[in-house]
């Protein structure tokens, strides 16, 4: 029986990728097999069966995972190997493609297959267009995270395959958790950004709260991080800071110099609050409130609380 393999380092993503694999298997007349490396993973579900590869460590580096999967694939000949488009998943898929000399379609959703090839859709030109891509079997693919529901249950039989000891020249020396205050502005969907309209450092708390209530992250303009040191450098959005493009960017008390605008101009929707009606930021905004942030922000928070 032809098989579509699924691998992800994360249980949740593995279950998403398994949903995608079901569509591919249906089109190609194949069955889905979810891979487990080194040890069994009860949190990982499969509509078809599971395949436990023995030999690699239970949380392998991307290099070791790719080597173990490649060894098994050379023997068992799956028609497709799907990973999640995470940092690790991308590396595993591209290494597999290179090792097995097969094609790879990247960051795809809406996957499917016919008798000869796998296909899917991916965003191009910064989301302005969608490209349909396909690749003849055998192929690798990385599946866009968040595009599929997680598969739940359906564990079929468990097969085992010994691929031998796998070593990776890359050794994990230490693991360190990100500091609690670390922000990931680049992936935030909503960003509340503070400017010099904020009078003192303590007042940032209300914006931090607002960001939390909007499920977003807190950013700032250059003076707040570089000159005043109110927020760490990683919060600084602008020409010499981070470049972001969230769904919603709320600029609070930011005048809107190019130094700042260059870092957020590609945001989908920009709203701003400023006391100065001539503030340049309004020209870069879709919505604007001319008003004191100390009145407007509490009003927004109240409205959000009422809606919740």
């Amino acid at each position: 029986m032809k098989a579509v393999w699924v691998y992800s380092e994360s249980d949740a993503v593995s279950n998403e990728v398994a949903s995608a694999a079901v569509d591919v298997a249906k089109g190609a007349g194949a069955e889905v097999q979810v891979l487990e490396l080194g040890a069994q993973r009860p949190g990982v579900f499969a509509s078809g069966g599971k395949l436990l590869l023995k030999g690699p460590p239970s949380s392998p580096t991307p290099g070791a995972a790719a080597e173990a999967i490649a060894r098994a694939a050379r023997e068992l000949q799956p028609i497709a190997i799907l990973t999640g488009a995470t940092r690790t998943g991308r590396e595993v898929a591209s290494r597999l493609a290179a090792k097995l000399r097969i094609g790879c379609i990247a960051e795809v959703s809406k996957l499917g297959a016919d008798g000869e090839s796998i296909f899917g859709e991916r965003n191009v030109f910064a989301g302005k267009a969608v490209a349909r891509v396909s690749c003849p079997f055998p192929a690798a693919a990385t599946v866009k995270v968040g595009a599929y529901p997680r598969l739940a249950g359906g564990n079929g039989g468990l097969q085992e395959k010994d691929v031998g000891a796998v070593s990776d020249p890359v050794k994990v020396v230490a693991r360190e958790a990100k500091s609690a205050g670390a922000v990931d502005l680049k992936s935030a969907k909503v960003i509340v950004s503070a400017g010099r309209g904020v009078k003192k450092k303590e007042d940032l708390a209300i914006l931090e709260e607002l960001a939390k209530e909007m499920h977003g992250a807190l950013g700032c303009s250059r003076p707040l991080s570089a000159d005043l040191g109110w927020l760490p450098e990683e919060h600084h959005i602008g020409l010499t800071g981070v470049t972001v493009k969230p769904e919603l960017y709320l600029a609070v008390g930011i005048s809107g110099q190019l130094q700042h605008v260059a870092g957020m101009k590609d945001s989908k929707v920009v709203a701003s609050i400023n006391t100065d009606k001539d503030a340049p930021i309004f020209q870069a905004s879709d919505y604007g409130v001319v008003g004191d942030l100390y009145q407007v922000v509490p009003a927004i928070r109240k409205a959000l609380a009422a809606r919740a």
Partner: peptide, 9 residues
Amino acid sequence: CLSSFDQRA
């Protein structure tokens, strides 16, 4: 460039 693209300039 700055006077072209910077809203203030």
